[in-house]
């Protein structure tokens, strides 16, 4: 894994020390150079009906890496994730300040079509939510929305997406079967395949394995690692082992604030702040 350029020359050396596990003197929050950053969150505050959920959050998510958000429940990690593809638009009680930029472009700008944004920033939810259709139709769903595909091309993309989600071998003989006939683990991979089929640049995963058994969890984790060569992944998880196993960078959120953000190895082995340490050692729920 090549090291990423950080935003300030002075921090570059810190980062390299970080990655090799040495203490970081530059502060608890890592920052990346604009040219490696895929998502820039700046001064983001979110409130549900007046109750603040995120407070003045600033962080950058690096391209082609897996970034994990961890923190106790209610800390705002899922809220932040959902803000990244504007799913909060559905809820009128949510008010927002601050900006989020995808590849340098403000996603709340009036000229941005929200459906196009959501296609570029795909999302996988905690509970698998396949549509009540066949396996094939589930994967083709997003493609059909865009239209203009020949049947053969569609078949190719569906096959590719299912292969990318490591599901092809299990379902290739029953593509017409109902998606609800799959096991929960398979359903979750189907949902990932469905999302991959529209070729997002970013994939947001909201506790994607929390409803799954250990073997399915392992498969999803493998999948996440294999996908980062092609897109940027952001993972929300309450499972710290999982964050440690799959992510490159980890952000620890608490009470709507970003507490610490560092390369995963360094955050777990050598947290800079006591709050972080308390959490990852289990002294704080």
């Amino acid at each position: 894994m090549p090291e990423l350029p950080l935003s300030q020359p002075s921090q570059r050396s810190d980062a390299s020390r970080l990655e090799s596990g040495r203490p970081n003197s530059a502060g608890p929050i890592i920052d990346f150079a604009p040219d490696v950053s895929c998502l820039d969150v700046e001064g983001l505050s979110l409130a549900y009906g007046g109750k603040p959920a995120l407070r003045d959050l600033t962080l950058r998510v690096p391209r082609h890496r897996v970034t994990a958000f961890i923190g106790p429940s209610g800390c705002g990690k899922s809220t932040l994730l959902r803000a990244l593809n504007r799913l909060h638009d559905l809820n009128e009680a949510v008010s927002r300040q601050g900006s989020i930029r995808l590849e340098g472009q403000e996603i709340h700008a009036p000229e941005v079509a929200v459906d196009e944004l959501r296609r570029r920033v795909g999302m996988v939810f905690q509970a698998p939510n396949p549509f009540p259709m066949s396996i094939y139709e589930n994967v083709a769903f997003g493609l059909r929305l865009q239209g203009g595909l020949t049947r053969r091309r569609m078949n190719d993309i569906v096959e590719w997406a299912l292969e990318a989600a490591a599901l092809w071998d299990e379902v290739k003989d029953r593509l017409r079967a109902s998606a609800w006939s799959l096991s929960i683990g398979q359903q979750q991979r189907l949902v990932i395949a469905r999302t991959l089929a529209v070729r997002p640049e970013v994939l947001l995963l909201d506790e994607p394995a929390s409803a799954l058994d250990p073997i399915s969890t392992l498969k999803i984790e493998e999948l996440i690692r294999s996908l980062k060569s092609q897109l940027t992944l952001v993972l929300v998880t309450h499972n710290m082992q999982q964050a440690a196993r799959v992510s490159d960078y980890t952000a620890f959120l608490h009470d709507g604030e970003l507490v610490e953000y560092a390369p995963t190895a360094s955050l777990f082995t050598n947290p800079r702040l006591a709050r972080t340490e308390n959490y990852i050692t289990g002294r704080m729920a």
Binding site: L87, D115, E116, R119, G122, M123, N129, L145, V191
Partner: peptide, 11 residues
């Protein structure tokens, strides 16, 4: 989550 699933695919 069915609605969100569809929206998240760009519908």
């Amino acid at each position: 989550h069915q609605r969100e699933g569809a929206l998240a695919l760009g519908a």
